[in-house]
Design a protein around this nucleic acid. Structure first.
Lengths: 167, 167
DNA sequence: AAATAAATGTTATGATATAAAACAATTATG
DNA sequence: CATAATTGTTTTATATCATAACATTTATTT
């Protein structure tokens, strides 16, 4: 039953060097089967679509996430938002500066704890959010279509969830 | 049938501000259901495990991939390897310099095309590869265990494959 | 063949992301 | 009250990534 397959490889595409010395090539993993690698490529591709979707609104993924979290629960402290997203609080400062400069979010000094800032949307920010969600919905639908449907999306999310955290 | 759920939210964890003004909170996606976000977190977690696994060998993901590709098919041009991995050839130079300085890979001037360099492992590089594969196998097994098994790994790879490319 | 265009590797540069250290102000704890 | 710890911030270092320009070499056009 076809044992000539690897003996004669007449195809110039696959026959070229054939691991000259030792180096058992059979032990080398195909890049397309390496979880981390495929994960990285997929993530870059999805982010690429996200970024292109948001070029007009000039919003980056991290900024989207921050605005979304503030909208979901206004009043949270800077550190809380940063930590939820895995952003170091030192790096969060510039990000928040940007959102404040654009007038979509603001810091308020908390009277109870004068160290912390609670984060809120501005009125303009609330208007912006609806625009943002519209763009995001189109993007997410595109991703779901690529996956094959909602069921596949759900399955993917489940599998990815098993990979996060638990370090 | 329990229609009091969202009316009274006595839980202090979830009842705090409740979207003071408008902002229909129901339209805001949960971060844990956003494909790009979950994808990113999972990728970081897997890379984290990879990096920790390779601290002793001092090998980064990109270097692993390059060595793996060279081992699979020695003699390929620099640009070819770079392009397969989505690395800009300008940025590939320093990476390859590093591998050459460590003595695991080398550039050879191609006599046919004196512009290009063909990439090869050194003898030391071939020894290094087997060590690298051993570390990588342990890492990959850890990832597969997190996912729940090989079947889940295969399913994940399939779904991720649908997200890559096709831009 | 000569002129022009394209490919290859390289250098240099800027933008962005990320991590760590130190600090002032404030709050919490001994 | 003295000492921790927390919070936001600034500064700095490093890694990643994209772009432009260049010299050398090869390919294509005229």
């Amino acid at each position: 039953m076809a044992l000539e397959d690897e003996a004669m490889a007449a195809n110039p595409e696959t026959s070229v060097p054939l691991a000259s010395n030792s180096e058992d090539i059979s032990q080398l993993p195909e890049m397309s089967s390496i979880v981390g690698y495929v994960l990285r490529r997929a993530q870059l591709s999805v982010f690429q679509d996200f970024i292109e979707s948001f070029t007009e609104l000039k919003l980056r993924p991290a900024e989207f996430s921050v605005l979304n979290l503030i909208a979901q629960r206004p009043g949270q402290k800077q550190s809380e938002i940063a930590e939820q997203l895995g952003i170091k609080r030192a790096n969060f400062v510039a990000l928040m500066d940007g959102l404040e400069r654009r007038g979509v979010a603001e810091r308020r000094k908390s009277p109870e704890d004068k160290r912390s800032h609670s984060l809120h949307l501005t009125v303009e920010g609330e208007r912006f959010i609806s625009e943002m969600l519209s763009v995001w919905n189109a993007h997410e639908q595109r991703i779901i279509r690529r996956l094959g449907g909602e069921a596949e999306r759900d399955k993917l999310i489940e599998l990815l969830g098993r990979l996060s955290g638990q370090d």
